[in-house]
Design a protein around this nucleic acid. Structure first.
Lengths: 189, 189
DNA sequence: GTCTATATGAAGATAGAC
DNA sequence: GTCTATCTTCATATAGAC
């Protein structure tokens, strides 16, 4: 049945999503994904013709979750500063995972950026979503032409926090930096 | 001859160093390192018993270069702020490489941190060197107990810059952020 | 010390039975 | 739609001739 097929497809994506995050894209094998999804290796290729396609599916899935999250924040918070601080709060909410596996977006981009530019271009679209949303917040704060630069700056700050926190498994550092960043937002003109 | 052996060993380390940076540790095969070093695959194992040992050699080599660089900066610059700004200037000097391959320390730590904690612990020692040196600079600026936090903060800032610059191959962003960071140092008490 | 040949295993991918 | 069996390639690693 088609619904069953879609379910299995989603199961594969969910399993791959977790493994790509925890192990990386290239180090994750088909067998691992198949095992985690409870699907025999062979049947795998019925849903995805190649590993690249699984990655595309995983990224598509992540993009849709990010979009939903950002739309939710737009509705939930009245001011750009509140929204920016909600963004920064990701550092607190994801501290445990980030300390263990890094940032799901950042680590994937770094891995793919070295030798797989086509795949990295797909992974980059996750950053694109955040950058566009952040740029809008800074634009609403009347930062004009600087809005995009501020968005890149803030995204970069959070990425740097994730790198150091991951390298040292240091959740305390993430909390300190989240505070610093929130203060930075509060102090914005 | 022993000298010849040492030369070849160094050739292997140099080749591996470049490949680990440009491709990553796990995606780099023995064959590639051997080819790049101009050494047949088999002879390889005479110098290194395993891939882990090559990594250890590469990291040792990088550590020694970093130490030399930091000692040089200590001699070359009279004030902590000048030294900190020299550190930030790495972003400008390495902009081309960072845009293509990311930060050699950060990307290695992220890759290894996911599933190879023992190897990542070795890679982390490169960060340790910078953190200790940066902490000393902030301590000289009388930041007391905050010196280490400021060191982590600054190292994180540069790592974040590298991640975004890599993801977007954006050298302009690195230059902007280097300016912002230099201004941050100048404004320090 | 240096090199060739090769063992061994795991990866991605395919063919085809059911 | 689902599964088994298998092909091919490439990885790390070793044995042993020179």
């Amino acid at each position: 049945m088609k619904t069953k097929g879609l379910d299995k497809r989603q199961q594969i994506i969910d399993a791959a999503n977790t493994l790509f995050y925890q192990k990386g894209y290239n180090p994750t094998s088909f067998s691992e994904i198949a095992d985690a999804a409870g699907i025999p290796r062979g049947n795998f290729y019925y849903y995805f013709k190649s590993k690249d396609e699984i990655l595309a599916g995983v990224i598509e899935d992540r993009l849709s979750r990010i979009k939903t999250m950002l739309v939710g924040w737009d509705q939930q918070f009245a001011t750009p500063k509140e929204r920016l601080k909600r963004f920064i709060k990701i550092l607190l909410n994801s501290a445990d995972d980030a300390a263990r596996y890094g940032c799901p977006m950042g680590s994937l981009n770094i891995e793919l950026g070295k030798t797989q530019p086509e795949l990295q271009a797909e992974a980059r679209t996750m950053f694109d979503l955040f950058l566009a949303w952040l740029t809008r917040q800074f634009a609403e704060l009347e930062h004009g032409a600087k809005a995009k630069h501020l968005a890149q700056h803030l995204l970069g700050r959070t990425q740097g926090v994730a790198v150091i926190a991951h390298a040292y498994s240091d959740i305390g550092f993430m909390k300190r930096e989240a505070k610093t960043l929130a203060a930075w937002v509060d102090a914005l003109p």
